[in-house]
Design a protein around this nucleic acid. Sequence first.
DNA 1: CGTTCATCCTGAGAGC
DNA 2: TGCTCTCAGGATGAAC
Length: 290
Amino acid sequence: MPELPEVEVVRRGLAEHVLGRTVADVELDGHRVARRHVAGPQDLRDRLAGRRVADVRRRGKYLWLDLGDSLGLLVHLGMSGQLLVEDADAPREKHLHARFRFTDDGPELRFVDQRTFGGLALADLGEGGVPTTIAHIAPDLLEAAFDRPAVVRRVKARDSAVKRVLLDQTVASGIGNIYADEALWRAGVHGERVASTLTGPRIGRLLDHAAQVMREALDEGGTSFDALYVNVNGASGYFDRSLAAYGQAGRPCRRCGTPIRREQFMNRSSFSCPRCQPRPRRRLTPRERG
DNA sequence: CGTTCATCCTGAGAGC
DNA sequence: TGCTCTCAGGATGAAC
């Protein structure tokens, strides 16, 4: 469940169902799910047992459980990860990788991930309670620490395609392929425009659109095209009905009626309106720009 | 510095 | 039915 709104939906579900509970034991299936925990799966299990979930936090697409004493359990859902709250006797999912049981009689927490690009790791919590292992991830567009003027300046300083910059989690986090395309459509900017050639106010508006579209998606429970993207109770969000660009190839643009086009960019698909978002004539080389 | 490319995986859907 | 091919909400590291 990938981008910021979908991860936030999961965070809220965890806050509702596991906050304040104490981990009894953890079962890990296979080595892959904890591959980023360098001390190994046994260490992960040993150090989680007996820990109380003091807080559930998120930055961009990363989630973590604050376990107190500056220890956190960092979770990334990758492309297909799910965190599900279920009764212990619920049928075992095909791609179940981890289950957390608690000291109370309540439901357990499961990590299910078809493609296993996601995973779990323990991390020290540093500045602001953020895991030190994601210190390179910038504040996301919806958090208080987001410094809009500073991000506008950073975007403006980049001589690369503006969509690439939107997807760069070290500049601003949380935006993925869907919301990048939606923000660019709303702003009327083609993703291959060179960031440094956009005006500061234009970049600011683009970021505002990105934040706004993610807020709207969150209100709809996120974007779900299929059962892979669900909240902790297994329910889908509804924002797919509101998408104006992503996945809309051939459908009329909601603003001007021109069929939405699909292009390859960064080895993935990009969707845009040919009329509202004209392609840049060509990319200028640094020396041409002087 | 920046960009491209491959890689980690499984499954759905299209086309034959 | 079944095969092959392409594609999918992401992040990372190597190579250029």
